[in-house]
């Protein structure tokens, strides 16, 4: 089942853990906060996406089954 990423930008404090774990999925904006992520994730990047979400200490990244 494919997954979907929901960003809660208000919770992001710019720790950059998500891009560390999942450089191919998450992008920071020019200020260093979570900027973007693809809405639907290609199968080969699913593991990365989940690891990146799990690494975010602020729980700013939510993964749902779509």
């Amino acid at each position: 089942m494919p997954i979907k990423i929901i960003l809660h930008k208000d919770r992001c404090n710019g720790h950059a853990r998500c891009v560390r774990k999942a450089p191919d999925v998450y992008r920071l904006d020019e200020r260093g906060f979570i900027g973007s992520a693809p809405e639907t994730v290609p199968a080969e990047l699913e593991d990365q996406a989940i690891a990146g979400a799990g690494a975010c200490p602020e729980e700013a990244i939510e993964i749902v089954q779509s």
Binding site: H15, A16, G54, P57
Partner: peptide, 20 residues
């Protein structure tokens, strides 16, 4: 261990800037 959300660097608006 799956849960890596330990608080060694604090949490929230003051969480450690030098954590990485």
């Amino acid at each position: 261990r799956k849960n890596k959300r330990h608080l060694a660097f604090g949490i929230g608006k003051h969480r450690c800037m030098g954590s990485n």
